[in-house]
Nucleic acid binder design. Structure first.
Lengths: 245, 245
DNA sequence: ACCTGAACACCGTTCAAGT
DNA sequence: ACCTGAACACCGTTCAAGT
């Protein structure tokens, strides 16, 4: 942005020593941004220290000046992605709907970034954006009259549910081999599983065989809303010793 | 078992060419058994094709005659572990309790085998023992009058919840560095997190700072029973249009 | 202070060659 | 049929050396 004047043509015979270095100086932000780009295009497994370094035109050792290691990089990626979660303005009258909307929003952001939910699953949130999400969840529940102990447990339980569902969701879509139509591939996988269940011995697995359609309906959204509904109703049931019902 | 006579002493000067091969012939069962032993002692990350092969006194290439690759090996490990889950004799009158007991039993078995739940999370159950567990869950709910569609969704949701909780649980215990007392290590980690939360800016995170104790209570069992209770009550609410209440 | 090359101790999987 | 050595194309992290 300082020495480069892209509006001027390169004078003849003036070749850069190395083919277009143009490298920005390494920063933590730049590393995390690059890592998220690799995540989005190729999935979490492709985000290796070496791959990120390569993308930045350097070697893996260079990253260690800005990031303590792979684990920290993954944590930083998660919090960067969490910044995309749109938080609601709490409206105490609508706390249950808002809690469900927020959960749906988190799931939307997670699934928009491949299998990033694997990083969230089973890690204590420490990044500022992740903490802001938890803060709003607590605020919604406290304003709705949920007792502190229950609200604390519920943040954990909701988080586990959202992460697990996002991971489950990406199993199908993310494992598509490159070059294949994701939906076509999914269809194939799906038929295979249905056929497998249908071929099971009916005497040992009468319920599974008899409920193949109910078990393999691929609607991830329906499963998510089902679980979310149950959880939020359950949380709400702790609001008062007995209200009007 | 055929050419070896262990009751006879080795004649003098008769040394085995290689130091005590004594190797059983490689079978899928032996490989899976060995892999689970490595899992139990060192965790899932330590279960590599090379490590399992080494444990069997051979090279990694030898395993590929009995197992298609690492993914299949992990699936086989999961189903072998699932064989330890004790299944109840369905008693329709107690279906809700039995469903909760079964979920608790699954969690017990998962956490007894380190982070095996990571394999379960987001994989469709196909092994015979895993299918037997799903079959009983469906049987319990169907006998309790849960509609098929709800029972199908509930098996998924319950499974996600159990896996997520088991993974969360092993975060603390399984990451203990070798040679350190797990509880001491956990204590330290825990104090660190509490201190971090307490030091957060109270104006941006009033609920988190104000609820540190509720948020960091380490009781995994309480969280599990809380979520389980909510889920099973939610499932039960679909039993009839309106019963006696 | 920041960056790097080279090295260390690992990975999963394939394949031609052996028995 | 089963097993193997060697190789291929990767890993995360460290460390002495450079600028």
């Amino acid at each position: 942005m300082d020495a480069v004047r892209p509006d001027m043509p390169t004078p003849p015979g003036r070749k850069p020593r190395r083919p277009a270095p143009a490298r920005q100086p390494l920063t933590q932000d730049l590393i995390v941004e690059t890592a998220v780009r690799v995540l989005d295009t190729e999935g979490l497994d492709a985000v290796t220290m070496r791959r990120v370094a390569q993308e930045l035109g350097t070697g893996p050792a260079s990253l260690y000046a800005h990031v303590s290691g792979k684990d920290e990089l993954r944590e930083l990626m998660l919090d960067r992605v969490a910044a995309e979660i749109r938080l609601p303005e709490p409206d105490p009258a609508r706390w249950q709907e808002q809690l469900k909307e927020l959960a749906t929003e988190i799931r939307r952001v997670w699934t928009a970034h491949r299998d990033i939910a694997k990083v969230s699953m089973g890690g204590i949130p420490t990044g500022p954006h992740l903490l802001a999400v938890a803060e709003v969840q607590l605020e919604l529940m406290r304003a709705g009259g949920v007792p502190p102990r229950i609200a604390g447990l519920a943040v954990d339980t909701l988080g586990m549910f959202i992460d697990a569902d996002a991971i489950e969701d990406t199993i199908y879509t993310a494992r598509t081999p490159p070059g294949e139509d994701p939906w076509e591939y999914f269809r194939g996988h799906f038929e295979e599983i249905t056929a497998y269940f249908r071929a099971l011995p009916a005497d040992r697995f009468p319920n599974i065989v008899g409920m193949v359609d109910e078990l393999t309906s691929p609607s991830g959204d329906e499963r998510f809303q089902f679980g979310l509904d149950i959880l939020v109703r359950g949380i709400a049931s702790y609001v008062a010793p007995r209200d009007g019902d």
